[in-house]
């Protein structure tokens, strides 16, 4: 579960207001899509939820834990896949995963089971002993997804996860996301690909210029907008 209460963030000493008084509740067991055009404030919001950025104002709770007051506990609940796969070039994939497992305190047995599974489905088994600098963009992304799921986070947050994945991997990812919610876990991801959101999400929010302009199930949103297509609604709401 994620709760944002009146969250704001600006850059360059207030000159760029990236996120403006955001209120949002993402429920347990829900896949939540965070939609918006480029520069709308999606990445900024996500960075604040995972604790990379500090909000100027407002409160963020992850599973009821305040990310600012109790960051370590909150971070244990989160698995984060960034929009760009920046990752240590000079470690091997396996070294990276082991490092992550160590800092999250995952037992040897558990990490072995998880790795067997993920490396198998992502077809990373042959590459895992190589330095990450030899990985393709997509392989790095798959490694980051694996790393994010090692500790079975109750809140899984992904920033534009489909870009850079081949159709097969992106299909797999969607399945992983759907499976993740079965245990009552939350999946929150940003995207600007409307079809993905429409097919996958229990609820969506559309953000424009740092403000939420629509939020609810697909039904609810369409109802409010005279049953137009999501694409039309999106274009209308995010005009300029």
């Amino acid at each position: 579960m994620i709760e944002l209460k009146n969250v704001s963030k600006s850059y360059n000493n207030g000159k760029i207001k990236a996120v403006d008084g955001l209120n949002l509740v993402v429920n347990p067991g829900e896949i939540f899509g965070f939609l918006g055009p480029n520069g709308a404030g999606k990445t900024t919001t996500i960075k604040m939820i995972v604790g990379i950025l500090k909000p100027d104002e407002g409160e963020i709770l992850v599973d009821g834990i305040d990310i600012q007051k109790n960051p370590i506990e909150a971070k244990k609940k989160i698995g984060y896949v960034p929009d760009e796969p920046y990752i240590y070039d000079k470690l091997t994939g396996l070294e990276y995963l082991n490092f992550i497992a160590d800092v999250y305190g995952i037992s040897e047995k558990e990490r072995r089971e998880k790795l067997e599974y993920f490396l198998e489905i992502f077809e990373l088994k042959n590459a895992i002993g190589d330095l990450i600098q030899s990985y393709s963009h997509g392989m790095k992304q798959k490694l980051l997804i694996t790393a994010a799921l090692l500790h079975s986070p109750s809140v899984w947050i992904l920033d534009e996860p489909m870009t850079g994945l081949d159709p097969r991997s992106s299909f797999l990812l969607k399945e992983l996301m759907a499976n993740h919610t079965k245990a009552g876990f939350t999946v929150f991801f940003s995207t600007h690909i409307l079809e993905v959101a429409e097919r996958l999400c229990d609820r969506i929010a559309i953000i424009n210029k740092g403000k939420i302009v629509a939020c609810g199930t697909m039904e609810e949103i369409k109802k409010q907008h005279e049953w137009e297509s999501l694409e039309k609604i999106f274009l209308e709401l995010t005009e300029k």
């Binding site: 396996l94 082991n98 160590d102 800092v103 037992s107 790795l115 490396l119 042959n126 895992i128 002993g129």
Partner: peptide
């Protein structure tokens, strides 16, 4: 092209757990 060995790694042997501090220092 960067040298990639592309060989399977025996997971069992290379999955040793260690404490967080040691993991951080090693990284």
């Amino acid at each position: 092209e960067i040298g990639a060995k592309k060989k399977t790694v025996a997971l069992e042997r290379s999955m040793k757990a260690s404490g967080a501090l040691k993991a951080l220092i090693l990284r």
